[in-house]
């Protein structure tokens, strides 16, 4: 299941984690490893066990079974030397009350022995320079998340854990955050993050573990996961361009569905079908939709993905 890359050292090795909460099995035999420098996503609906898994990997929660090696060292019991090499952003952003953005960063920096001037560099990195002297409770949701990420990065950690950094953000703020997350990875930091946004995981992650009900259902690159589905591509055409009878006769068409206004064809040979449509000069208003991670989730669990 894990695609090891022998050219890169492993930043995280997780083996057979189990965690029960009073009869409820929150994490069920979870194993994976993350290479140094990788952008690794744990994807799943709420209650899938993402946060518990992350907390065990960070070393704040003890697993009932299984073990975690982080940067080559065991994470449990609490290992302060290891903790100064990792950065953590919790799901609810943890800030000191009544402190400004700069002071939050200075305080966290002080815990790691980081120079106080580093706070301003971090503010610049996350685009909050002009908010340096503003108190944390006056920030917008996206700004708070960026500050929270800056606090996780203030000591230049080798691995950073981000728990749903883009949850509850508007689309613009989410996209701003994607840029930041990419830049962090480009800086050489291993990023492990949880999300319930399929589209986002597809765009950001080198590899994705899809979790549901405490188990990892599948783990691979987003492209490989989608390819593995061999799911049909859907081609939608306006009804004026093509009627359903003609659609059935096109090469490679498997099913034809007449929705309101559109005729939707599904095919496993999209190139042949689109070429045939082009010959008929019927490409006006055509939309082609390939499978996404949502289709992967649907295939794996047999139900629609609800974030």
């Amino acid at each position: 299941m894990v695609t090891d890359r022998p050219d890169r050292p492993m930043a995280i090795e997780v083996d057979g984690l189990v965690k029960d909460y009073g009869g409820f099995r929150a994490v069920h035999d979870v194993s994976f490893s993350v290479a140094a420098g990788e952008f690794f996503g744990i994807l799943g609906p709420n209650g899938a066990g993402k946060t518990t898994t992350l907390e065990i990997v960070e070393g704040i929660r003890e697993p009932d079974e299984g073990a975690v090696r982080l940067l080559g060292e065991p994470v449990w019991p609490r290992n302060p030397r290891l903790l100064s090499r990792i950065g953590v952003q919790l799901q609810a952003s943890a800030f000191f009350e009544r402190l400004t953005c700069r002071e939050q960063l200075q305080t966290f920096g002080g815990l790691y022995g980081v120079d106080q001037r580093r706070a301003d560099d971090m503010l610049e990195l996350v685009g909050l320079t002009e908010k340096a002297d503003v108190r944390e409770d006056q920030l917008s949701g996206g700004q708070r998340q960026r500050l929270s990420i800056a606090c996780a990065l203030v000591h230049d950690p080798e691995v950073v854990f981000l728990d749903e950094p883009t949850a509850a953000l508007d689309p613009q703020a989410r996209r701003n955050l994607w840029d930041l997350l990419r830049r962090i990875q480009e800086g050489g930091t291993t990023v492990v993050y949880t999300t319930h946004y399929m589209d986002e995981a597809e765009i950001l992650c080198d590899r994705v573990a899809i979790m549901d009900a405490g188990r990892i259902l599948s783990l691979d690159t987003p492209a490989a996961l989608i390819r593995g589905l061999s799911a049909a591509t859907r081609v939608a055409l306006p009804r004026e361009v093509l009627d359903t009878g003609a659609a059935h006769r096109l090469p490679g068409v498997e099913t034809v569905v007449d929705t309101d206004g559109d005729v939707v064809l599904s095919t496993r040979e999209p190139a042949r079908l689109v070429a045939a449509l082009a010959e008929r000069n019927a490409l006006d208003g055509v939309s082609v939709r390939t499978a996404t991670l949502e289709d992967v989730f649907l295939t794996l669990t047999g139900r629609e993905y609800r974030a």
């Binding site: 890169r8 002071e103 305080t107 815990l111 790691y112 230049d156 930091t189």
Partner: peptide, 28 residues
């Protein structure tokens, strides 16, 4: 942060001192 690109081979960072940690928490 954006140019460093050698994962896993990071120079040892600054070592946190308890006096620095105390100062930081007290100030907050």
């Amino acid at each position: 942060v954006t140019t460093r690109s050698t994962p896993g081979t990071r120079p040892a960072g600054p070592r946190p001192s308890t006096s620095g940690q105390l100062r930081s928490l007290s100030r907050a």
